[in-house]
Design a protein around this nucleic acid. Structure first.
Lengths: 310, 310
DNA sequence: GCTCTTGATAGTTAATTTCTATCAATTAGG
DNA sequence: CCTAATTGATAGAAATTAACTATCAAGAGC
């Protein structure tokens, strides 16, 4: 098999028709080039250069192989270009997974800033159930998750982005709607609606309900936060919902109202999750820093946890 | 710059997603492959493979570069194919120069046999004056000459093909037309016409005329053997012409007749001439052997000199 | 005839590639 | 839960390749 260096020397000989000038153009000595051309001819089993002391000519095979060598060297040089462009930060596609209760209400807050700062960054976003998303991340079908933490998988690394309080959502004419804040004891006797099992939010709401001795409905479960909201509006119960959803979907409609908890509110932590060993960790850390800065400016309802320094 | 070997290892890793299996398929040990992948990543300044103990994945850059590497390796393999096919005998184009007094009457004798035996051989044929042809051969514009010998050029090699006798050509009603053979003394008092200077045949005819004390015309010279023949037919003199020309153009027309010399006829040697150092010498020797066999069968008028064994 | 230039060769050195031995980490099986 | 097997990585040594310097023979130009 020829080496790339040998092809480079052959191309130089084809261009210069002079061994010493070809060697100079390749930054090697003339004996080196002469010996490598001869070695190439031996490897290929054919003569490539017709030489005498007074003149050098390419054989037909030599011409053809020099042309193909030129093309190969160009393509190898392009590999460097690709490798360099791959290094440019946040300039390719990131395949992101989000749980239903995060993506639609959080990403729109930061995407305008993100696109302005990194116009070449593409986000390919898939929504799904938590277990499915985790498996897709592990399998390499996704690169990154925005996901409730903690995540206890040895193959995955994570980084906290923000803590999002949970608020109480009720019909506009509910007795608690007159209160500015809800003490958990006020929820006694009420029915709490939640998403169906499989959602991390379901487990969170179940845990909160147990803590405060509040009934968690098993008869009526939502398939999405929107369907939950609609059931709450018809008086079938109250619900506990994340602050960013409330900001996005509840605050500017009047079919339900939301009130924060008094004192230390229950909350969930949202973070980024990626595979240990990923080559894009630097990229993801840069992305998280940017998202944290953007959220600090645009979402006072939540507590940003990540490092916002540049 | 990546090496071809490194690209080969990367392609194998992309195919196998397993370092040990990739190493096996490349016939190297696993530490060799691991180290070379790492070296490639350092040379390119980007990560190509995402690896943990349990699984190996290609990065986006790694995938792209592996694909381009695959293409480059395919093109390098094609160079071997070309080198091999260039070795295949008499399968390309030979650029041939012939003097006017040789080509048109000799090549048509052997071309049918030649084309049948070597269908891929192309002959690019140029006619010209001897000095021009010699210069074109030296400059590389031609590969091979069919040419009167000897040729005394240090840069050129030659090989005899055949000896071609010279015959006397006269009007059909000339007094010598009754003779079956011409003794040179019979030419006393006659005027010999020849080609203009610059042709090797001119020099040959001049030499013969001097040997036999026969007048060589300087007033009327031919630009081709055909124009000579026409002048002979009109009684402007006799001429001395090569046997193969006679066979081709004179024998089946009745405006002139040809008679051989008695005893040892003057003759010329025709051979092949090529550059010393040519890579195609083996090819040319094979061609000459074939031509000699063909002429032996088809041209009893001449004496074949080359080696006719296969 | 002498000097300069050419591509080639020989011996040596430097660089690269490959090996073996071994490691720490992870997974699978008992 | 423990042990054995397998993984990719590292270190040092050996083998191979590429490059150097010195020099050669041959040809061209003056």
């Amino acid at each position: 098999m020829p080496s790339l260096q040998q092809l480079r020397y052959l191309v130089a000989v084809a261009d210069q028709l002079h061994f010493r000038r070809a060697a100079e153009s390749c930054n090697v000595t003339q004996p080196t080039l002469s010996a490598q051309i001869k070695e190439l001819e031996m490897r290929l089993g054919t003569s490539l250069v017709e030489r005498s002391r007074s003149k050098v000519m390419m054989t037909p095979a030599g011409k053809e192989i020099a042309e193909r060598g030129r093309r190969i060297l160009r393509e190898v040089a392009e590999i460097h270009t690709i490798a360099k462009s791959g290094q440019s930060v946040l300039s390719s596609v990131i395949r992101i997974g989000v749980v239903q209760t995060v993506g639609s209400y959080f990403l729109p807050l930061v995407i305008p800033d993100l696109h302005q700062e990194y116009p070449k960054l593409g986000l390919y976003i898939r929504e799904g159930l938590p277990d499915v998303l985790l498996r897709s991340l592990e399998d390499g079908a996704l690169d990154l998750l925005f996901f409730p933490l903690p995540v206890n998988r040895v193959e995955l690394d994570s980084l906290s982005l923000f803590r999002e309080p949970i608020q109480v959502v009720m019909p506009w004419d509910h007795r608690l709607a007159q209160e500015p804040e809800i003490d958990p004891v006020m929820l006694r006797g009420e029915t709490i609606l939640s998403l169906e099992p499989g959602h991390r939010l379901h487990e969170l709401v179940r845990s909160i309900s147990e803590d405060y001795g509040v009934d968690l409905s098993h008869d009526y479960e939502g398939t999405s936060l929107d369907t939950l909201r609609q059931m709450v509006a018809t008086g079938m119960g109250l619900s506990l919902m994340p602050a960013l959803y409330v900001k996005s979907e509840v605050a500017h409609q009047d079919i339900v109202v939301a009130r924060p908890f008094r004192g230390t509110a229950p909350s969930r932590t949202i973070g980024m999750v990626w595979r240990k060993g990923t080559s894009r960790e630097k990229e993801f850390r840069l992305l998280s820093a940017f998202i944290c800065r953007s959220l600090t400016a645009r979402a006072p309802e939540i507590t940003v946890l990540g490092d916002v320094s540049r």
